[in-house]
Design a protein around this nucleic acid. Sequence first.
RNA 1: CCAGAGGUGGCGGAGCGGCCAAUCGCACUAGACUGUAAAUCUAGCGGGGUAACCCUACGGAGGUUCGAAUCCUCCCCUCUGGA
Length: 372
Amino acid sequence: MGKIATFHGEIETPAFVPVATKGTLKSLTPKQVKEVGVKVAFVNCYHLVTHPGVEIIEKAGGIHGFSKLEVPLMSDSGGFQVFSLATGKRKAKVFGEEEPLVEKISEDGVKFRSTYDGTLVEFTPEKSIEYQKKIGADLIMAFDECLDCGADHVYAKKSMERTHEWLKRCIRSSTIDFRISNIKNQKFQFLYGIIQGGKYENLRKESAKFVVSQNTDGVAIGGVSVGETKEEMRQQVSWVSEYLPEDKPVHLLGVGHADDILDLVGYGIDTFDCVEPTRLARMGTIYQIQISNFKFQRWEKIDINKTIYKDNLERVDENCECYVCQNFTKAYLYHLFKQKELLGYTLATYHNLWVMKRFMESVRESIRRNEI
RNA sequence: CCAGAGGUGGCGGAGCGGCCAAUCGCACUAGACUGUAAAUCUAGCGGGGUAACCCUACGGAGGUUCGAAUCCUCCCCUCUGGA
């Protein structure tokens, strides 16, 4: 149990961090985001740099003011895109031609192609920090290389060492002239270092020791949820568990299935970001959760697109008290999804996030009761 | 009654002698999704068999042809215009 205090509010941990990549929690208004109990969200530096650009965000008073997402925000450094844009299964078309979206990874940094117009964008640790400073999220990530799970030991080691060097540079540039609020003259941005090391135990441990020694404000574990199995992922977290700091927040990047969270809080993870509840919601996957007396019982998902829900006038989730479940039926949601009505995405997202909120409450309660 | 257009798989709509069990779209079915190039993607979609393949199919009945959804004849039906 813990609390992360930020300039924009407090986060009770363990916490789930929904993903608002481009400065919007897709399909929800900021008002709904607050209403559904989101206490922290995740935005992405790479995407915000390519569109709309960090200058306009800075002019607008940072991402909080620009987007009106007035909850504590974490920003990703762009490191994940080194992985996702380079190895993504989808083919990119730039000027009608297929071109790699990651041009070059070197000691200095990474060159990306904008996914919109093909412009070359360069990320270095210094630039990532500069961008994230302008974006102005409360909690920011060091620039890392998110290793593909298929990487061999030689590359994994090289990549890890590069990530460590980059972390030192991130710390250096982050302490020069920022992390000081020009409003209240107090530190308001906090930096997380990222543990890498791939699927190799010795590297993971080496990386954990290094990152924890670096006096960052928080520690994150990266290079997971990149295609490895659940078991591998959990193993990788377990390897570094003993090195994780108790007095600093620990974030696990990209992980967030309920069963993962339930298992991994025991390893000392405080916050989890994951696209799952919001992305699946837009695909029509509706969480069904049973919690009694704050104890988590059962977790299921239904696909509201299935014809069996066409005439189903039961509430969306029998065990839920959220706005959606108090007012709407499965048949109505089925109808909205079949017709691709925008409200369907909103209601599904709202409900799934509400479920996540209840789920995390139950996790915290279980810890309080010493059941985890 | 006359003139013209047309009848193809659940629907819309291609094909207009062989490579057609029939492009494509929709619908349907199944699957995927973990630091979001994702309100997306993949696969299946007449019946049967693991498969080569077999059967039934392009309004109906005949016919021409080695071979027809495609050409011919008759019939049935629909739409548009005219009386």
